[in-house]
Design a protein around this nucleic acid. Structure first.
Lengths: 220, 220
DNA sequence: CGCCTAATTGATAGGTATCAACGCTTGTGG
DNA sequence: CCACAAGCGTTGATACCTATCAATTAGGCG
């Protein structure tokens, strides 16, 4: 896998209403509001500036798979087809830049955006792989443990060494369950077990403190 | 998600030893041979021409997660970091074009390759999502069933309507197990159950025939 | 031939999905 | 202001499924 991460940081993001004109607009959204639905025409790419998004895949059986959560800095809405394969909904209030799809592939388009796009796509692959590793864990306990690790990394935590670490959990237990392929009750029980085991403290369901360092996700 | 799939087909692949010079070389590999290891410097991107690859993520606990299988046409080896996050091994004999990483991001580089690269990355995201949906299935039976569906789609099968369909399964039961997050025995039992249920016929472990149409993976 | 790996089948214990009930908060309407 | 409904999170009981250990068979290879 080739090193492309520097592209994201090297290319400055264009202003929402800058010289680029009407190609890019900023949009505010509120918690619970959908950004696009599964099956919609994929005409825009969203550059998340604030807030948390949930990407879901619906099955004919009615089951739901959360294929990812998105945090500020993520580019969302890429599709290999003309239609969205997944739907995307806001978990919290936030805002995003909306880029028109035409600017993405055309040679006359924003090459800076194109590079960031490639970088974002490569990063999305890596994040999906992380999720696969999470879901591959045998026990529900280990899955939720890995999920907390994932949250810490994605939230851009200050990495305060080995001390206690507060973690915001903006999504619901149901979202976590559909993310990890577990039942809601199992996720809830796993949190309780983590608390009883002294790994975390739980002030409320959406705010926990990691007391012991979590096991490393992979092989260093 | 923006429509980018046409880029892959629109841009002709450069010849292995064409005018581009020594930037791209072709490499033959044999079954079992590693293309790169987890932790290696990510200096090349592999454009698979023939054969099947297995991408794996090793955990410190010794567990292994297969993060994907690759088939001809795939671009393999992209990484958001300087090092490979996963290892890649050949399951069958095959061959691949090896592109140097420098040509990928530089403005003077092969723009055709860059576009194919973006398209491939977007496709990899979609494939990883498919895998997530597979792993999210509750029962082992449904997981293996979805895996067969996945294999049919990825092999570029002729799609002969509703008739019986032969499926090559180049990977081992262990690979499938680590791919789906199951135990080897469970995968083996699922195949047996599928045979007993009349869904498939199994001439040998690596060659099955789908007798009944598999349930659609998602929501159309 | 003997060793090794892969695949399969059996038996069992353990984990998780499922059904059910409860407390809590939120929001809505009387 | 209060009553009620609805959603979310948690906990309990139980049946089912799967991981695990174990044994067997078949095939490849030195």
């Amino acid at each position: 896998m080739t090193h492309l991460g520097h592209l994201l940081t090297a290319a400055p993001a264009p202003g929402a209403r800058g010289a680029a004109g009407a190609r890019t607009v900023e949009r505010l959204f509120r918690a619970g509001q959908p950004l696009f639905f599964q099956g919609d025409a994929a005409r825009h790419v969203f550059e998340l500036r604030a807030g948390v998004l949930r990407q879901t895949y619906l099955l004919v059986s009615g089951e739901r798979q959360v294929t990812g959560f998105h945090f500020p800095g993520d580019l969302v809405g890429l599709s290999p087809e003309a239609l969205h394969r997944t739907g995307c909904t806001a978990i919290t209030d936030g805002r995003a830049l909306i880029h028109r799809a035409e600017a993405l592939a055309s040679p006359t388009g924003d090459t800076g955006l194109q590079h960031r796009l490639l970088s974002a796509a490569v990063r999305q692959v890596a994040l999906a792989q992380d999720q696969l590793v999470m879901m591959g864990r045998k026990s529900a306990f280990a899955k939720v443990e890995a999920f907390l690790h994932y949250l810490v990394n994605r939230n851009g935590a200050p990495r305060t060494g080995s001390g206690p670490l507060d973690v915001e959990i903006p999504m619901s237990r149901t979202d976590i369950a559909d993310f990890l392929g577990l039942a809601v009750e199992t996720v809830s029980r796993a949190f309780t077990d983590l608390r009883n085991a002294g790994v975390i403290a739980m002030e409320d369901p959406h705010r926990v403190t990691i007391l012991r360092p979590l096991p490393a996700a992979g092989m260093q």
